[in-house]
Design a protein around this nucleic acid. Structure first.
Lengths: 138, 138
DNA sequence: CACTACTTTAGAATCATTATAAATTCTTAA
DNA sequence: TTAAGAATTTATAATGATTCTAAAGTAGTG
């Protein structure tokens, strides 16, 4: 369990004022061992449950965007209708469980080297992301 | 240049009545050599340009969904804010050019075998899709 | 032709997200 | 510590994409 000063520092160090709202959101997002995959809606619900003080939806959006911009979160697109964010900002991949709509991390070292044979002249590769869709075996 | 009867047959064979609107949309989508990547907005614009008769936006949505359901189109998610459809329904991958927002197909045989080392018990893999983000080399 | 089911349509409704502008809070420096 | 200015939060409105609705139109069948 981190104490708030860790998050206050984190925020300050990237030029964000450590407001109550931002610190609260940090606690939910980053005070955990495992990767966290969430939608804005999920997060808003958790804030409502975890804290007595209300945080407006606009602030949730603002904060998530600020965090994404600073590299604290990654955005993941599965289907157009679902936007998830991921606290794991390393280079990695995902399983998407179609039976449950659940996302599972797939670390870089859990996927063999990916050889992109086609080259696009004048372009360089920024990232290679794999999405593995899975479902119940039967 | 295919004639309409090809599309009328295609529609009929999958239980869709070959209405004027659907045939028009078929002509735009499928009467071409190369894969076509498009958004609903793109398509609506093309319909407006190519045909004298108006097609309502609701019909465009209905038709695209019907085509997707029947496997004539694939949906592609890049960023949450962009939904593209793809007339290439084969198992394949994509480049996404971040400089131009352009999608480029990457066929299965242009990517080396992808070895997913992590297994999820009780689940089977439905698909493996790679998204390669690219940008100008400099 | 007449019937029925399928389609299309305009417009309303919904949902997620972004914009706005006023109120609040944070930081700083006196 | 307090005043000033900038950053932030907030409620609400605005936007944009998509879906819904219910009425009008159309295709297929006998």
């Amino acid at each position: 369990m981190s104490n708030n000063s860790v998050f206050i520092e984190k925020l300050r160090s990237s030029g964000l004022r450590p407001t109550r709202q931002r610190v609260q959101i940090c606690k939910i997002l980053f005070d955990r061992q495992k990767t966290f995959h969430f939608s804005i809606k999920d997060l808003a619900k958790m804030i409502a449950n975890d804290f007595s003080e209300k945080v407006s939806l606009a602030t949730v959006y603002n904060t998530i965007h600020a965090f994404k911009k600073r590299g604290y979160l990654k955005e993941i697109s599965i289907n157009s209708d679902k936007t998830y964010f991921d606290t794991n900002t390393s280079n990695h991949h995902h399983f998407f469980n179609e039976s449950t709509n659940e996302l599972i991390d797939l670390e870089n070292n859990e996927v063999g080297k990916i050889n992109i044979k086609k080259k696009i002249p004048g372009k360089k590769i920024k990232s290679v992301e794999v999405l593995v869709k899975i479902a119940n075996s039967n």
